[in-house]
Structures are given as structure tokens and as C-alpha cells.
């Protein structure tokens, strides 16, 4: 049972729903009574947000397009991957990404939607020893669209995988990353930002399984929700028996800026090894009243003070993006969203 198979078979009963523990806050089965028909090929797709920052652009429109990105040993590529959805149909795509030993890949991934589509994308990342991947995801879906992105990452020793997912949500949206972490001094960073207004929904779900010695995972997710929006964060870190000297930290912090918005969080630790240091912190609330007063005492009107503090709150995540042009694009996108809301 999965979103991909529901799209393939057209059977809505295959969609995950709130009875599935991992989908309790992202109920697709309750939302979609009937799987929309297959999408027609998309017409013009226009420009993507990362066009200027990448050397190559790969477009997958309504499920059609190149499905493999490879980096040779010691190679170095910067690729913009555009997942474009147009219209009211459903479509699915699979993308495999192989980065061989000591190769480097900067993947600037964007979800660009217009319409009330149902879209599923499966990405499979495979990293060689010492490979370095930075994945920056900007999800700009339609308020009527339903998007599910499921990435599976196989890390290798001494490799590093850094990810920042930034989303404005959709009618319902799930951005999921599953990582198998072999330890061996491999480094994993899984960051996320959700900025939601109106009735939008976004679900950032991650599952990291530490399978070997000396693994590091660092995670920072932040969200800002207003109106009747709903933000979901599910982060699970599993440390298998024998995966000693694992160091894993997870933080999720959200601001609720209206009375009817909602944030649901499940930061989970599942530990089967004893020599570990794992921690998570989770806060949900509003802007710090003391900081707000401090800023206003210095002369900032209420709205200016709130905007400054909110941008700073999210900025802590955006700043961690290593690729500078991507960071600037992400920061500008975030600033626009916050001011526009």
C-alpha cells in the first residue's frame, strides 16, 4: 500500500490514511475519494526557482522526464531538478541519484505546481564512500495540489548528506526522507522549514536508521503556521544494536501565529545500543513576549518586531545551507512568504 501504487492502480483504498500510525496527521485516504485520472503531458513549464544557480536543469513534468542523475568518482555536478505538476490529474515519477566515491552533487530540487493534481515522486539516493551531497528542496505547490515526495537515502562511510527542505505546503503535502546511515564517520544533516498560511498543510517526516559505529545526525526543523494551516513534523531516529558512538540530535520548533492553526509533532528516538548520545528538543508556541517587548522598547512597532523575530527564527535553518546561491534564493523565498503572510 502506497501513494505510488494508488496512482498506478487508480484504487483510492491503497492511499495511506489516519489509521496508519505514520500518516495519522496526513490523511490522504480521507481526503481523496477517487484517484484522479492520469495527467496529460504538461504544456509549457516556464522557469524554475533554481535555474540561475545550477549548471544543468532536469525537468520532470507530470511524471515525464529524465529519471537518472549520476556523478562519477571525484565528479562534481550542480543540478536543478524540477518536479512540475500541471492540471488536475495524477502522476508519479521515480528518480535515481547515484553519487560515486568522492563525488559531489548539489541537487537543487523544486516542486512547482499549478492545479488540483495528485503527485508522487520517489527519489532513491545512493552515495559512495566519501561522496558529498547537498540537497536543497523548495516546495512551491498549489493550494489545491496534493504532493507526496518520498526520498530514500543510502549513505556510505565518510560520506555526507546535507538536506534542507523548505515548503509553503499544499492542500496536503508530505515530504519524507528515509536514511540508512552506516556510521563510519558519515555525516547527516536533515533540516526543514515550513511556512504555512490559509488552509495549507505540510508534513515533514524523516526516518534515520543508524546501522554502524560512529554516525552523526543533526536535525533542525522550524515551522511558522498561521490562519487555519497545519504543520506536521515526524522525526524518528533509530539506533540499531551495535551502532555505538552514534551522536544524534534533533530539534523541532514551531510558532503558531493564529488561534486556529495547528502543529503536530512526533520526535521519536528508538535506541538499541547503549553507547550513544541522542537528544531531541521540541517547542511549540508563540513569539517570546520578552524579546518582543525588548524590540519594541528599542522603537520597533509591533509588526516590525514580529517580522524581524520570525525571520530570525526561520533564518537559523536557512543559514545552514552550504551552497551560497541556493541559500540566497531560499532566503529570499522565505522572506517573501513571511512578509506576504
Amino acid at each position: 500500500m502506497s501513494v505510488a501504487s494508488a496512482i498506478k492502480t487508480g484504487d483510492a483504498a491503497e492511499l495511506p490514511g489516519k489509521r496508519d500510525e505514520d500518516w495519522r496527521w496526513t490523511d490522504l485516504r480521507g481526503l481523496i475519494r477517487q484517484v484522479p485520472p492520469d495527467s496529460a503531458p504538461a504544456a509549457a513549464v516556464g522557469a524554475g526557482p533554481f535555474d540561475g544557480a545550477a549548471e544543468e536543469i532536469v525537468v520532470i513534468a507530470n511524471g515525464e522526464g529524465a529519471a537518472h542523475i549520476g556523478v562519477d568518482p571525484h565528479g562534481d555536478r550542480t543540478v536543478a531538478l524540477r518536479i512540475v505538476s500541471r492540471g488536475d490529474g495524477s502522476h508519479a515519477a521515480r528518480v535515481s541519484i547515484d553519487v560515486e566515491a568522492d563525488g559531489r552533487l548539489t541537487l537543487l530540487e523544486s516542486y512547482e505546481g499549478e492545479g488540483s493534481y495528485l503527485s508522487q515522486t520517489g527519489l532513491v539516493f545512493s552515495l559512495g564512500v566519501g561522496a558529498q551531497v547537498e540537497r536543497v528542496v523548495l516546495a512551491a505547490d498549489d493550494a489545491e495540489g496534493v504532493t507526496v515526495s518520498e526520498a530514500e537515502v543510502q549513505l556510505a562511510a565518510e560520506a555526507s548528506f546535507g538536506q534542507t527542505v523548505i515548503t509553503g505546503g499544499a492542500r496536503r503535502q508530505r515530504l519524507q526522507t528515509t536514511v540508512r546511515h552506516p556510521g563510519g564517520h558519515a555525516n547527516l544533516r536533515l533540516d526543514g522549514v515550513y511556512l504555512l498560511a490559509d488552509k495549507r498543510h505540510a508534513d515533514l517526516t524523516t526516518v534515520v536508521t543508524h546501522e554502524g559505529l560512529d554516525g552523526v545526525t543533526e536535525q533542525l526543523a522550524k515551522g511558522v503556521v498561521r490562519d487555519q494551516a497545519r504543520g506536521v513534523f515526524q522525526g524518528r531516529i533509530v539506533v540499531a544494536e551495535g551502532a555505538d558512538r552514534t551522536d544524534a540530535r534533533m530539534g523541532h520548533h514551531a510558532l503558531i501565529l493564529s488561534d486556529r492553526a495547528e502543529v503536530d509533532a512526533r520526535p521519536e528516538l528508538e535506541i538499541y545500543a547503549d553507547d550513544v548520545s541522542c537528544a531531541h528538543g521540541n517547542t511549540v508556541g508563540r513569539l517570546d513576549e520578552d524579546a518582543l517587548f525588548y524590540a519594541r522598547q528599542r522603537g520597533m512597532p509591533d509588526d516590525v518586531a514580529r517580522a524581524l523575530l520570525t525571520e530570525a527564527f526561520v533564518g537559523e535553518v536557512v543559514e545552514r545551507i552550504g551552497h551560497e546561491p541556493a541559500r540566497d534564493i531560499a532566503a529570499a523565498w522565505v522572506a517573501e512568504r513571511l512578509r506576504g503572510g
Binding site: A254, I256, R260, E262, A265, G281, N282, G285
Partner: peptide, 13 residues
């Protein structure tokens, strides 16, 4: 953790 209003403050460590 389920927060359904903007006046709630939850902290978890």
C-alpha cells in the same frame, strides 16, 4: 504533540 491554538506553549526535551 498536538497544538491546536496559538496561545499554547509546549516544551519538550
Amino acid at each position: 504533540i498536538e497544538a491546536r491554538n496559538g496561545q499554547a506553549v509546549f516544551e519538550h526535551e
